[in-house]
């Protein structure tokens, strides 16, 4: 274990979030045990009031976690200055076996927090606290995952070794390399791109047909597909280097921070897409599927633009 200010701050934020969520957890358990809208006891009134505390906490933690994940990436980026071999966050994430899991769990948790808030808003709009029990049961799951995230984070930072040489993104995402992503890397990038555009077309069809469940499922697939396509097909065009595959370097100033925009579009689009399945039941009105589709389209448009622009400039395809 060694600490930089960024690590201390990351841990501070997560400890704070966890402490607050622990309060919400106690509330959740009490509500699951005793919440009964039909009863007129003072305990029931107290529980109704406490549910506001829990939802405030969840909203706050979500509001902290969204910028914090970008700060986490920044922390990793900075660590790449210290850890030999790392050129960007990619090398630091894979510096030990916990990094990749931690990172994925962080993203999953943000999606779950978002879904929870949708359910919470829906609950406030029912005249009898219809979803209160459901949302706190859901919260228990989230709490366990956040706890896991915290443990993983401690393990990850605890096992960072600055004397050990790690791989840079150049080797990690190289097709010939032996890396965790080697299985995906072995697929022809053109096939990956094809699958990516096919999924996008399927989203369009689902939106036209107004099939929310299908759209939701496709959005769930679109998130990993877009990430993989970004790494193996689109990033060489963004970096203008046939061998440079990396999902993190696009966050750096050399590429005009385009990564932040791309990931924001992708996250909002897929989040609303996934949530669209629950929307009619919870919110009592369907979500306009063109909203998430619009975000997806912007994402697809920007990454495609890089490919076309490169071709227009150089008259060759990179892959």
């Amino acid at each position: 274990m060694f600490f930089t200010p960024e690590i201390v701050i990351s841990l501070l934020i997560d400890t704070l979030s966890l402490l607050l969520l622990a309060i919400a957890f106690v509330v959740a358990v009490r509500i699951l045990l005793w919440f009964d809208y039909g009863s007129d006891t003072s305990r029931q009134y107290a529980l109704e009031r406490q549910s506001y505390l829990a939802s405030t906490i969840v909203a706050f933690v979500l509001a902290v976690k969204i910028p914090a994940i970008f700060y986490f990436i920044y922390t990793l980026d900075r660590l790449s200055l210290v850890i030999p071999g790392a050129m960007c966050a990619a090398g630091v994430v894979t510096a030990n076996e916990y990094g990749v899991w931690l990172f994925m769990l962080k993203i999953v948790n943000i999606y779950l927090f978002g879904l929870w808030l949708v359910l919470h808003i829906a609950d406030l709009h029912t005249s009898n606290y219809h979803y209160t029990r459901a949302k706190f049961a859901f919260f228990l799951l989230i709490f366990i995952l956040v706890l896991l995230e915290f443990v993983l984070e401690l393990l990850y930072f605890g096992h960072l070794d600055i004397s050990q040489v790690v791989s840079c993104c150049g080797t990690l995402f190289n097709r010939a390399a032996h890396s965790p992503l080697a299985l995906v890397a072995a697929i022809d990038p053109k096939v990956i791109a094809g699958a990516f555009y096919a999924l996008y077309a399927a989203l369009l069809i689902a939106a036209l047909a107004k099939k929310e469940w299908l759209f939701s499922l496709l959005s769930l697939l679109f998130l990993p597909a877009a990430t993989v396509a970004l790494i193996f097909f689109f990033s060489p065009y963004i970096y203008e280097l046939p061998t440079h595959h990396c999902p993190f370097c696009i966050l750096q100033p050399e590429y005009h921070y385009i990564g932040y925009l791309l990931y924001a579009l992708l996250f909002i689009g897929t989040f609303l897409g996934i949530a669209s399945a629950f929307w009619p039941k919870w919110m009592k009105k369907p979500l306009n599927l063109w909203i998430p589709f619009g975000f997806d389209t912007l994402f697809v448009g920007i990454v495609s633009f890089y490919v076309l622009y490169y071709y227009y400039q150089n008259h060759v395809w990179l892959l």
Binding site: E48, Y52, L124, H125, T126, S127, N128, Y129
Partner: peptide, 13 residues
């Protein structure tokens, strides 16, 4: 009130 029960409304309502 106006034939609607108001004595047991959640806070929002």
């Amino acid at each position: 009130v106006e034939n609607k029960i108001v004595s047991k409304l959640p806070d929002h309502f």
